[in-house]
């Protein structure tokens, strides 16, 4: 976008070719020169902070000392490790020769007890690792959505159309990919999901628009990755998208629910789901009620349907293939 390039032009962040191209345009376009002047004024606050901090005089020396100590410690460890293993080999062999059956039984018992203690902890640790990895990916996708909203003139997140081939929740992923807000489709897949070894391709928007009806089902099921996206809400008979208002507990994205229970959902992490909120924080929530709300269901609207909310505060997150409004829903012509 030209306004971003004007900032880059003034701060010297453009590549030489981009810089020259913009300079030529500026030479011939009075309106663009006026815009450049305004952007230049906008940079004024940053220019107030022209000072630099002098690093402490010995910082470089202390840093190099740190590396030296590390290298020396490694040398000592390697040297002493080799000597000990050489000296210990005979002693270990002598001990082995004196082992009795009772010794083996006791050793096996100890190993079994250790395994009982260790494996649940290991499993829990892996679960935790996957949870953190998923939260990081969800945050990455959420930040891309935020970037999208910041680049949108109205501050809107990707708006799901009421009709047409892009009218499903999963449209947010191709939209982000096509807009250059996400580089790597891998972020759309949760590491805790069982099918995460198969990384599916996020289609281009054009691929969706030109897909045959029989191919759309597969596309719809997969194009939103492993996350559920906010379906928007219906107001004055119109399907509305979500504007970024930086609300602390308004959810934009969540782990895809695999099964709806009475008061919660099952996701790749078991009961509960990670949520990305409009203000950019990620939180794991056990129930399916929106935090800080009385009873707003995260995955159903106030009528108990997997459809867009019935008002601006009725947040509903839909999995990839969910339509915010039913097929054939009529947009009132008077609106």
């Amino acid at each position: 976008m030209i306004r971003d390039d004007l900032v880059g032009y003034l701060v010297g962040a453009l590549d030489a070719s981009e810089h020259d191209e913009l300079k030529q345009r500026l030479d011939s376009d009075e309106n663009l020169r006026q815009q450049l002047k305004l952007v230049d004024r906008g940079l004024q606050p940053l220019r107030w902070d022209a000072g630099t901090q002098e690093p402490p005089a010995d910082l470089a020396a202390r840093t190099c000392d740190l590396i030296d100590r590390h290298v020396e410690d490694n040398k000592v460890e390697r040297a002493s490790g080799g000597a000990m293993s050489a000296a210990g080999r005979e002693e270990w062999a002598d001990r082995n020769r004196n082992w009795t059956m009772a010794d083996f039984v006791v050793a096996a018992g100890v190993c079994l007890a250790a395994a009982c203690l260790f494996f649940p902890a290991l499993s829990s640790s892996r679960h935790h690792q996957r949870m953190v990895a998923c939260q990081n990916k969800l945050r990455d996708v959420g930040l891309a959505l935020t970037d999208y909203s910041m680049s949108d003139r109205q501050g809107m997140f990707p708006v799901i159309p009421a009709k047409g081939k892009m009218g499903v929740a999963g449209m947010y992923a191709p939209t982000l990919m096509d807009g250059g807000f996400v580089d790597n489709a891998d972020v759309f897949y949760c590491p805790a999901k069982s099918n995460n070894t198969i990384v599916l391709k996020i289609p281009k928007v054009n691929e969706v628009l030109s897909a045959e009806p029989e191919d759309l089902v597969t596309l719809y099921n997969n194009m939103g990755g492993d996350y559920a996206y906010n379906l928007g809400f219906v107001e004055n008979g119109k399907l509305q998208g979500v504007r970024n208002r930086n609300r602390r507990f308004y959810p934009i994205l969540a782990d895809e629910p695999l099964e709806l229970l009475a008061d919660s959902v099952v996701t790749g992490h078991g009961r509960g789901q990670n949520l990305f909120f409009e203000d950019g924080h990620v939180e794991f929530v056990m129930t399916r009620t929106r935090p800080k709300s009385k009873s707003d269901d995260l995955f159903l609207n106030d009528r108990g349907l997997k459809q867009a909310g019935l008002h601006a505060n009725d947040a509903v997150l839909g999995t990839s293939s969910v339509r915010p409004v039913p097929v054939g829903w009529q947009v009132p012509s008077s609106q």
Binding site: M1, D4, V7, G8, A13, D147, M150, G180, F181, D183
Partner: peptide, 11 residues
């Protein structure tokens, strides 16, 4: 991150 994202974030 993509170059476009850097631009929009600076803006």
């Amino acid at each position: 991150i993509p170059v476009g994202t850097v631009k929009s974030r600076l803006h």
